[in-house]
């Protein structure tokens, strides 16, 4: 009897040890994020204190105040919101229609279309950078938010198309057929049955499109060089480069603010993470 108890105890100890190790490793991975948050809440003087304080001795929101009232950060933020939202709306409408067409209709070049989508998804941004610059320049869309939205569709659209394609592929065709027998036209069947069914896919694609556009740096750096059309990533990097005395706590406050929409999106996304990510991004 005591032998079995000892065994059970040993197993339990092993389990607790494994749990603790897992959490230690997770916290190690997440440490930079905590450090970012911690630094953003410290008074400037404490930032440079040695030894560094892990948890701020004095919590202050002065950096967030400075950021919002004494820097162009709010402009960058607004620009980013407009660009990311615009990209998302455009991309979702276009790719939902496109994905449905590719899955449900037979016409010449349909397979090629699907292959092209995947190809574009893998295409390096830097290959399109130069010609896109020329096109936007000729359209007068350099230094405009619309230009950036168009540029972002080059990666957000293939991604969404691919993700929504796999969603619609998994959808039984019976439902659309039932709707058409019940008196719906093809387009009505799409609106009444396919769109509501694809909602989880639409949400995933929308959130990913938003996050990708929110985070993009290279196109934003090259296309929008004026302060009033800059988005957050190049904008904040400019703030890093401008001052000779880097104000790390201010930059960390900016980082935290930039991360907030992503966190919000992430919380929504989590439920769809495995389905959306698994279907769209990994399995072709």
């Amino acid at each position: 009897m005591s032998g079995r108890r000892a065994l059970r105890l040993r197993r339990r100890l092993l389990r607790v040890a494994a749990d603790l190790t897992t959490w230690a490793l997770v916290l190690a991975v997440a440490f930079p994020l905590f450090w970012m948050l911690g630094t953003s809440l410290k008074p400037s003087a404490e930032t440079f204190a040695l030894p560094p304080t892990l948890i701020p001795a004095h919590v202050t929101f002065e950096h967030f105040r400075t950021l919002l009232f004494e820097t162009p950060f709010p402009t960058y933020f607004l620009n980013s919101v407009i660009v990311a939202t615009g990209t998302t709306l455009l991309v979702i409408v276009v790719s939902l229609l496109g994905a449905y067409s590719v899955v449900r209709f037979r016409y010449r070049g349909r397979r090629l279309a699907a292959q092209m989508v995947l190809f574009t998804y893998l295409l390096p941004a830097v290959v399109l950078l130069l010609p896109l610059y020329l096109i936007l320049a000729s359209l007068g869309l350099v230094n405009s938010l619309l230009g950036l939205i168009l540029a972002y569709t080059t990666f957000a659209m293939p991604f969404s198309l691919w993700l929504l394609r796999s969603f619609i592929l998994a959808m039984p065709i019976d439902l659309e057929e039932a709707a058409m027998v019940d008196g719906a036209s093809r387009v009505e069947a799409f609106l009444d049955v396919v769109v509501p069914q694809a909602l989880p896919g639409i949400i995933s694609a929308a959130l990913f499109s938003f996050i990708l556009s929110w985070n993009e740096y290279l196109y934003a750096l090259v296309f929008n060089r004026q302060d009033h059309t800059k988005t957050l990533p190049p904008g904040v990097i400019t703030m890093l480069q401008q001052n000779t005395n880097t104000e790390w706590s201010l930059l960390m406050a900016a980082s935290v603010m930039m991360a907030v929409p992503v966190i919000v999106a992430f919380v929504f996304l989590q439920r769809h993470l495995t389905s959306g990510f698994g279907a769209g991004a990994v399995k072709g």
């Binding site: 019976d174 057929e177 039932a178 509501p196 069914q197």
Partner: peptide, 12 residues
């Protein structure tokens, strides 16, 4: 009117 093998009820 048609009754489908899968019933094809609109899930939403």
């Amino acid at each position: 009117a048609m009754v489908f093998q899968s019933y094809a009820l609109y899930p939403h």
